[in-house]
């Protein structure tokens, strides 16, 4: 966990991120993911530049910024999905639970189990709904049918999609609508019981109703999971998040409590962006 000498520093920064009404939440509020001078390169191109940030456990952190500013890149670095891109490498440090994410002995498979991700485009497997949700638990050694069923039901309920699919769990997941597929993907991630939930524009392909459901879901999961959500929708960021990070051209420009960032931004660039005066 967090080393004691950095704790006071942490406490100070944490106060900045905490929205007033949540300062009293039980548990959480610890540093969960900590970046320090963390850069990400695609070949020679530096897509994320020396970012230092502190993401608190069981809080919702929103990431906003113009297209191509490195939001996805940063998010995908946390569960090492960038490993799939051969040209991608990092410098600086990124800690998860106090351990180096890019350390020599880090088990990325275990890391990804703890840091779940929901992608911008819904990506269910071409399997049945049940098998989709059970994929993770089975992977991690669960084979008891009854327990699997329990997990599937619980996850689907948490993702607010149980009522829509409970009578066709054996049907192929690709037959669901886009919004249903996205919630299914959330349920699939929840079934693994991760500690951190990374959401990369989870509602960009959804209609307002489905979007509202996902937002409700985030509200519900808040306090039990550390959630990071990338979004282009300012209202969404202000509705669901406790703190917000603003990226611009790979640089973390400002990171503050959401209420403060949207009403009283410190950086003029942030202000331009959130008021839409951005060119």
């Amino acid at each position: 966990m967090i080393t004691s000498e950095s704790f006071t520093e942490k406490k100070a920064t944490r106060d900045i991120y905490l929205p007033p009404e949540r300062k009293t939440v039980d548990g959480g509020g610890e540093s969960h993911v900590v970046a320090k001078d963390f850069s990400i390169y695609y070949g020679e191109f530096e897509a994320v530049k020396k970012v230092s940030a502190d993401i608190l456990s069981r809080y919702v952190t929103a990431i906003i910024g113009p297209s191509g500013c490195g939001k996805s890149t940063f998010l995908r670095a946390i569960n090492r999905m960038n490993d799939l891109i051969p040209s991608c490498r990092t410098s600086g440090s990124l800690l998860f639970d106090g351990e180096d994410v890019y350390g020599k002995y880090t088990d990325e498979v275990l890391l990804r189990k703890k840091v779940g991700m929901v992608f911008q485009k819904p990506n269910p497997f071409p399997k049945s709904i049940f098998d989709n949700i059970a994929y993770g638990p089975r992977l991690h050694g669960m084979s008891d049918k009854k327990k699997l069923m329990e997990i599937v039901e619980r996850s689907l309920k948490k993702a607010a999609i149980w009522d829509e699919v409970c009578d066709r769990l054996d049907k192929n997941a690709l037959g669901l609508s886009g919004g249903q597929q996205q919630r299914l993907c959330v349920a699939r991630t929840l079934a693994v019981e991760p500690e951190v939930l990374l959401l990369d524009e989870p509602t960009s392909a959804l209609d307002p109703k489905a979007t509202a459901k996902i937002e409700d879901l985030i509200q519900e999961l808040r306090g039990s999971y550390t959630i990071m959500i990338v979004t282009h929708n300012m209202q969404q960021a202000s509705r669901v998040s406790d703190s917000t990070m603003f990226f611009y051209e790979g640089v973390l420009v400002e990171h503050a409590a959401t209420a403060q960032l949207f009403t009283n931004p410190k950086d003029p660039m942030t202000e331009d962006y959130i008021t839409g005066r951005f060119s």
Binding site: N79, M81, L84, V109, L110, R112, K113, K114, G116, M117, F119, K121, N123, P124, F125, P126, K127, Y135, G136, L139, H140, C185, R188, T189, V192
Partner: peptide, 27 residues
């Protein structure tokens, strides 16, 4: 096979080999 299947499987904490055996090859 869509890249997204691979991403989905890996992001759930699957090993590379397991991803190949349970997602990529069936697809």
């Amino acid at each position: 096979v869509p890249k997204t299947y691979r991403e989905a499987s890996l992001s759930l904490g699957s090993t590379k080999w397991n991803t190949i055996a349970t997602v990529i090859l069936p697809a």
